[in-house]
Amino acid sequence: MKKKILVVDDSEPILELASTMLKLLGYEPIKASTGVEALKALKMEKPAMALLDVILPDMDGFKICQHIRSNTELAEMPVFMVSAKKTTEDMERGQKAGANEYVTKPFKSAEMAQLIKKYIGD
C-alpha cells in the first residue's frame, strides 16, 4: 500500500508539480489548497507525512503544523514547511511550530525525495 503524503499549497502549479513528483516516487499525494482542506484531509486520510506551504489564504502552515503536533494521533507525523520565505525568522517559526524540516522554494526534486525517504522510507 502506498504511503499517503499531504501536500498543502495555494498555488495550483506547485500543487501539481509536487503531486507528480510524489507519484513518481511511489507515494499517494493528498492535495489541499487551504488550511481548512488540510485539516479535513488530516482527519480523513491519516497521511504518513505533510508538506505545508507557509502562506495560505485562510491560515498559515505554522498553525496547521501546531494543530498536527497537538493531536495525539498525528503528533509523530513528519512535517516539512515548504516556502518561498527564506528568512532565519521564518525558519525559526517553523522549528517552533514543530516542523521537522524547512525547505525553500524552488526545491530540487532529488533533494526533496531524499528527505522524504529519510523520514518515511519508500
Score class of each variant (00 low, 15 high):
19 S>W: 12
40 K>R: 12
101 E>K: 14
110 A>D: 06
66 Q>V: 02
21 M>R: 05
73 E>Q: 15
63 K>V: 04
37 E>N: 04
12 E>M: 08
72 T>M: 08
20 T>M: 15
50 A>Q: 03
112 M>S: 12
68 I>H: 02
75 A>H: 13
83 S>Q: 09
104 T>N: 15
29 P>K: 11
97 A>P: 04
33 S>E: 08
92 E>F: 11
45 E>T: 10
101 E>S: 09
118 K>Y: 13
95 Q>H: 13
69 R>M: 02
108 K>M: 07
75 A>I: 06
13 P>H: 09
38 A>C: 01
75 A>W: 00
88 T>I: 06
56 L>I: 07
70 S>H: 07
36 V>K: 15
108 K>H: 06
29 P>E: 05
83 S>D: 10
48 A>R: 15
27 Y>R: 13
105 K>E: 07
62 F>I: 05
91 M>I: 10
29 P>S: 08
43 K>W: 09
18 A>Q: 05
14 I>F: 14
115 L>Y: 10
39 L>E: 11
69 R>I: 02
7 V>I: 15
79 V>E: 14
9 D>H: 12
41 A>T: 00
47 P>Q: 05
113 A>D: 14
46 K>F: 14
44 M>G: 00
64 I>A: 01
35 G>F: 05
11 S>F: 11
23 K>F: 04
4 K>L: 08
13 P>E: 14
117 K>M: 14
63 K>Y: 04
102 Y>V: 03
51 L>F: 14
53 D>G: 03
11 S>D: 15
50 A>L: 09
35 G>L: 06
14 I>E: 14
107 F>M: 06
68 I>L: 03
19 S>T: 10
